[in-house]
């Protein structure tokens, strides 16, 4: 029998359902010959899961690109603001296309890692207290908890991105350290920021974070053909399970907003266009220049995202 250690963090939630499903499917398909022990924080700190994979401390792990941009420059393309990804299916499609790019594979191989799937996250819309901030003017001087590209975008329009970790977000909101918090819906629920909120932006869609699941290349290559087949063949199913589960959560989301009396703020198209023009374009251009200077095929990666997005939409 073979047991893999899997390092994730926090508690079991929508964000980890595909990993749990994968473990379940693999064990099923191999009659318990190949099992996965999913550890929530016992094996590593979340920011060091790539290090753990590189060391060989565990065989599988989840991480987010924004935690440490310099460890995974190539996939930060997926965290650029206002990419225009509208739903989780599109998020899966663009992520998996980017993961197949040789530059990404190369960079991950430096960590002895191979990405097997993404953890699709919806757009990081913001919750806030007080009057809704539904124009760029009202967002000036707004203290917002936002990281990575989304943080840069808010900075570009004169908001003040503020550094607090996800676990401190509620406290930061309560203490007025931030006025607004940018999260995926499940995180607004599990970190309690929804309980402090008066409003939520339904269509700001500023971007999202990208959190792949990786395996240690040596461990993967040492798998017997049956075990590897069991793993490979379970990935699509695990993602499908994740999407179905998250879909249920999103369905409940409206209901939760109602229950808590949180206003759904719709931002006017011209305001959104202004936001994109001020934030998305310059940040993307700066990213491409910066990454290209480091020898990363940045334009190619960005084009790949756009092409995949178009293809996915055409396919539907």
């Amino acid at each position: 029998a073979l047991e893999w250690n899997v390092s994730v963090w926090g508690k079991r939630r929508a964000f980890t359902e595909h990993v749990e499903k994968l473990a379940e499917l693999v064990a099923e398909k191999t009659n318990g010959e190949f099992t996965m022990n999913v550890s929530y924080g016992g094996l590593s700190k979340n920011k060091e899961n790539l290090d753990g994979i590189s060391i060989g401390a565990f065989e599988m792990a989840q991480f987010c690109a924004g935690y440490h941009r310099d460890k995974n420059r190539t996939i930060t393309v997926l965290e650029l603001p206002f990419l225009g990804v509208d739903n989780l299916n599109e998020e899966v499609a663009v992520s998996h296309a980017v993961y197949q790019h040789p530059a990404v594979k190369d960079e991950m191989a430096q960590w002895n890692a191979k990405i097997i799937m993404t953890s699709p996250m919806p757009q990081y819309n913001i919750v806030g207290t007080g009057e809704p901030r539904d124009t760029l003017d009202k967002m000036k001087g707004m203290r917002v908890r936002a990281t990575g590209g989304i943080g840069n975008a808010f900075e570009a329009i004169g908001a003040v991105p503020t550094s607090v970790t996800a676990t401190e977000a509620y406290q930061a909101m309560e203490s007025g350290v931030v006025d607004t918090v940018s999260f995926a819906q499940h995180a607004h629920l599990s970190f309690g920021t929804i309980n402090k909120a008066d409003w939520w932006t339904a269509n700001l869609n500023p971007g999202t974070v990208n959190c792949p699941v990786v395996v240690n290349i040596d461990a993967y290559e040492a798998l017997s053909p049956e075990n590897r087949e069991a793993l490979d063949s379970s990935i699509d199913e695990a993602i499908a399970h994740y999407l179905a589960n998250y879909g249920e959560l999103l369905k409940k989301w409206d209901q939760i907003l109602d229950e808590k009396g949180v206003q759904k703020v719709v931002i006017a198209d011209e305001e959104l266009a202004k936001f994109r023009k001020m934030a998305a374009d310059p940040i993307r251009e700066a990213w491409i220049v910066d990454m290209s200077a480091q020898g990363i095929p940045a334009q190619e990666l960005y084009d790949l995202v756009m092409a995949t997005l178009e293809k996915t939409r055409a396919g539907n």
């Binding site: 930061a172 309560e174 203490s175 007025g176 350290v177």
Partner: peptide, 8 residues
Amino acid sequence: FGGDAWGT
């Protein structure tokens, strides 16, 4: 007093 806390 029920308002915001002053910080962390």
